[in-house]
């Protein structure tokens, strides 16, 4: 059964019809990627799921429970946690404090154990646990933003362009982490411009263009698909 399912979702910014009937589903333990060019509607899709935007039509279900009318904090409480675009961290707080903040919706007693798990996943963060988040490098901030989301023990993790603006080495290490999370059974909906990397880690993928899904298939098939290769993988 699908853990997260969108059915014919339409979202508007005023008169701008940004999502024109998006349908997708994410199964338990899967990594699903949304790829598409600038302004295709990828972030809009994630923001609609997480309650920051309200769709005008269609439904969004988590285990057949309706998320459509929930407020953002209620969506987080249900277990759908987004890592916002652009590695936003609490710059004036330390790494540890950022992680503690991530567990805001959890019981206090659980925090320590989860923090150890996050530190195991990101040893670099552990080294820098008392450093102010604002002074971390870009890659470290992205790790922290992901770690912070994991502290909430999400059922589904929504990642918005985790590799944006990072050096190739760091992109690799971010995708390694995503693989590790996959190995540990985390369900992830991954938005990426770096389609090549995204299709390597993902199980399945959706290609979005001007607010519509134009193609969806297993990641392996999408990698082989000619039009995908041309448009998103830079193969001519």
């Amino acid at each position: 059964m699908a853990i997260l399912e969108l059915n014919d979702v339409h979202t508007y910014y005023g008169h701008i019809h940004a999502l024109r009937g998006i349908s997708l589903r994410v199964e338990l333990g899967e990594i699903v990627t949304l790829i598409g060019g600038n302004g295709a509607g990828k972030s809009t899709t994630l923001n609609t799921i997480s309650g920051l935007l309200r769709p005008r039509q269609g439904d969004i279900r988590l285990y057949s429970e309706d998320l459509r009318l929930l407020k953002p904090h209620e969506v987080v409480a249900k277990g759908v946690v987004q890592v916002p675009e652009g590695r936003r961290v609490f710059g004036r707080l330390t790494v540890t404090e950022n992680l503690e903040m991530g567990a805001f919706t959890r019981q206090r007693g659980e925090v320590a154990a989860h923090m150890e798990r996050v530190y195991a996943l990101f040893p670099r963060l552990k080294e820098r646990r008392r450093q102010l988040a604002g002074t971390l490098s870009g890659g470290e901030q992205q790790m922290l933003a992901m770690g912070r989301a994991l502290m909430a023990q999400p059922k589904v993790l929504l990642l918005d362009e985790p590799s944006m603006g990072l050096a190739p080495v760091l992109v690799d290490s971010i995708f390694d982490t995503i693989r590790q999370l996959h190995g540990a059974g985390t369900t992830i909906l991954l938005v990426e411009q770096n389609a090549r990397m995204a299709l390597q880690v993902a199980d399945r993928g959706y290609v979005i263009q001007t607010g519509e899904v134009i193609l969806h298939d297993t990641a392996a098939n999408l990698r082989e698909n000619e039009s995908v290769q041309k448009a998103y993988l830079g193969v001519s």
Binding site: S50, L52, K71, P72, H73, V76, A77, V81, Q82, V83, P84, R88, V89, F90, G91, R92, L93, E100, M101, G102, F104, T105, R148, A149, A152
Partner: peptide, 25 residues
Amino acid sequence: SRLGRAWMAMREDEDVAQAIGINLV
């Protein structure tokens, strides 16, 4: 308190505060 932490998160970054499950209203 928990409310104090929510205030702190909101002061630092309203959007992130919302993303970690804080009821801004």
